[in-house]
């Protein structure tokens, strides 16, 4: 924890205070982008069922991400078109890596 006094605004009052390490390390909130299919867990891509330009329905199988000895099937969250595929079969991916970009119908 740093000993410097920072400013914390609560109910329009500005308090001079130190920040905890956790508060300083917190990640700003990012709203979810439904067009992006990201790895929810690090692992290895086993199968890819779609290619760019394919039309997909909500619930269609997109790919298989193997992690923790479990083959996780990743489904399309909405109907739309596959814009880009960023991974190949047997590729290792880290958590939050972008796997597929969709063009979702509103």
């Amino acid at each position: 924890m740093s000993n410097d006094l920072k400013k914390l605004i609560l109910d329009d009052s500005i308090y001079k205070t130190r920040f905890t390490k956790k508060f300083e390390l917190r990640k700003p909130y990012q709203p979810e982008n439904k067009n992006e299919i990201r790895a929810f867990i690090p692992g290895i891509i086993r199968d890819i069922f779609v290619k760019p330009g394919d039309k997909v329905q909500k619930g269609d199988k997109l790919l298989v991400l193997e992690a923790m000895k479990m083959k996780n099937r990743i489904f399309s969250p909405s109907s739309g078109k596959v814009k880009k595929v960023f991974v190949k079969s047997d590729q290792k991916v880290a958590k939050n890596d972008l796997l597929i970009e969709l063009d979702i119908e509103e």
Binding site: M1, L8, L10, Y15, T17, R18, F19, T20, K22, F23
Partner: peptide
């Protein structure tokens, strides 16, 4: 503890 985070209650 007003010295840290103005003494707020939070999760921890």
């Amino acid at each position: 503890q007003p010295l840290v985070m103005a003494g707020v209650l939070d999760v921890d």
